[in-house]
Write a protein that binds this DNA or RNA. Structure first.
Length: 452
RNA sequence: GGUGAGGUGGCAGAGCGGUUAUGCGUGGGCCUGCAAAGCCUAUCCAAGGGGGUUCGACUCCCUCCCUCACCUCCA
């Protein structure tokens, strides 16, 4: 699999048959996840599924940052304990991820559960003169790391000139960032430098080092993490270890609304929950996978209704195959090859989606004209695999209801053959009451459970 | 101001130095007892502006314009 590396700008080949370590920067948990968070999680979920489908043993780590200024602020303003607030939103993200069929990461480390590792890493940084103790806490000395800026393409003197960096009198340089903040409030720990809590960034360096002994194969997150988060992670980690932090850096483009980045501060964010209830989880996945991951995508009514239309074609195809009792069969398929080649090519989910849609369209065509048969076994098998790799999940009803619907569909077919249309219509109404849409072609009755 | 990513048909969105992307939408048709779904077919042959390289550029180079992101917390 070929992946574009943000740091070098080059395409890096990954052996998709070996072991692959992936570290994704997850959420800071002080509010519900929005569609932008969902996109990043979905893209990396598909990448993981594809790597595993290709034979790789993937260790997939996605962290939660559960100690942070925002969490403390939100907790204070809503009169709840910060730890409880973080816990609540971790749980709610878990529900969102489940609804979106995002596979559980191998590990979901939390910053608060890694205080010894964090403190130890800070200590090492101080010992190697990469960090220093100041009045308000411990800071990373950016001037000690000559490669600083290599990921984001920023030069330290330009950053200095920018003067938008917060000035803190106890820092040697405005560019230095906090590793440990002295504090005696909630969510604080004892450290050699006094009571306090970690700064943002250090938790990811400590947690990734814990889960990966050497270089991480793929380190990812949203584009907005490139600076300062990932830049600072590199500085910290590479000052501690003699290997690079990651072989490949992968950054997912922003989700915009009316061309503007979705963000909480702008007040234009759409929560995952809202999007799912308005459009359905599969349509949201289709939307998030409908462009190459590095590009921005614009969330809008029309984009989402198009995603729903695309999803419905896939949904219909699934039920056509099911009703025709096509038995999956191994074999080679041009569209399946296009699907895997697309994903191998820098995780081109759009290309993969196109292959899946073309497959659905061909099968729907066959269903509408000659009918599906055992001859479609190979396509049926490829279709199922593609659905699975894309993480799309057709809505089902209970097994009992499926049996009942099959029986009703059979009954309706014979009533129609006998031209007993009133009775056939009654059966259709019955099927609708169970939640199934009825599609007729040429004497055959197919039912579909629609997501929406 | 700096850095990065882009500007493709009504919309979304690819690839490619010379052949129709594709999908959605729209028009027409087919199937059907009805409805729904589906299918077929047509439509749209577009490439921010200006230069250049070339036999030939949407595809390469230069330049200008514009959009977005990051430079402050952010997936």
């Amino acid at each position: 699999m070929k992946i574009h590396d943000t740091l070098t700008g080059a395409d890096v080949n990954l052996d998709a048959t070996g072991r692959i370590g992936v570290y994704i920067c997850g959420l800071t948990v002080y509010d519900d996840a929005h569609v932008g968070h969902a996109r990043a999680s979905i893209v990396f979920d598909v990448m993981r599924r594809h790597l595993e489908q290709s034979g790789a043993a993937v260790t997939f780590v996605q962290n939660f940052t559960d100690v942070d200024d925002k969490i403390l602020e939100r907790a204070a303003s809503t009169n709840v304990k910060a730890a409880a607030l973080a816990e609540k939103y971790i749980a709610r993200y878990g529900e969102d991820a489940e609804a979106l069929n995002i596979r559980k990461p191998t590990h979901e480390p939390r910053a608060t559960a890694h205080m010894p590792e964090i403190i130890e890493m800070i200590q090492r940084l101080i010992e190697s003169d990469s960090a220093y103790v100041a009045e308000n806490g411990v800071y990373f000395d950016v001037s000690s790391f000559t490669d600083y800026g290599k990921l984001s393409g920023k030069k330290t003197d330009e950053l200095m000139a920018g003067a938008r960096v917060k000035v803190d009198a106890s820092k040697r340089s405005p560019l230095d960032f906090a590793l440990w903040k002295l504090d005696d409030g909630e969510l604080t720990w004892q450290s050699p430098w006094g009571q306090g809590r970690p700064g943002w960034h250090i938790e990811c360096s400590a947690m990734s080092a814990k889960h990966f002994e050497s270089e991480i194969d793929i380190h990812g997150g949203g584009r907005d993490l490139i600076f300062p988060h990932h830049e600072n992670e590199i500085a910290q980690s590479e000052s501690c270890h003699d290997h690079k932090l990651a072989r490949v850096w992968m950054h997912v483009g922003m989700v915009t609304v009316d061309g503007q980045k979705m963000s909480k501060s702008l007040g234009n964010s759409k929560t995952v929950r809202t999007a799912i209830s308005e459009w359905g989880a599969n349509a949201l996945r289709v939307f998030c996978l409908g462009a190459r991951y590095a590009k921005p995508i614009d969330y809008s009514e029309s984009a989402m209704s198009e995603s729903v239309a695309l999803w419905q074609q896939i949904e219909t195809c699934y039920y056509e195959l099911r009703r025709a009792r096509v038995v999956p069969m191994h074999g080679t398929s041009r569209l399946y090859a296009k699907f895997t080649e697309s994903l191998d090519d820098n995780c081109d989910t759009r290309g993969a989606l196109d292959a899946l849609l073309e497959m659905a369209s061909r099968l729907n065509d066959a269903a509408a004209t000659g009918g599906l048969s055992a001859a479609h076994g190979v396509a049926c098998s490829a279709f199922a695999t593609m659905l699975n790799v894309m993480g799309l999940r057709v809505r089902r009803t209970s097994g009992d209801n499926e049996d009942a619907l099959d029986a009703l569909a059979d009954k309706r077919e014979s009533l129609r053959a006998e031209k007993k249309y009133d009775e056939a219509d009654a059966v259709r109404d019955k099927m609708k009451s169970i939640g199934a849409d009825v599609l007729d072609h040429d004497g055959r009755t197919v039912w579909v459970i629609r997501e929406r």
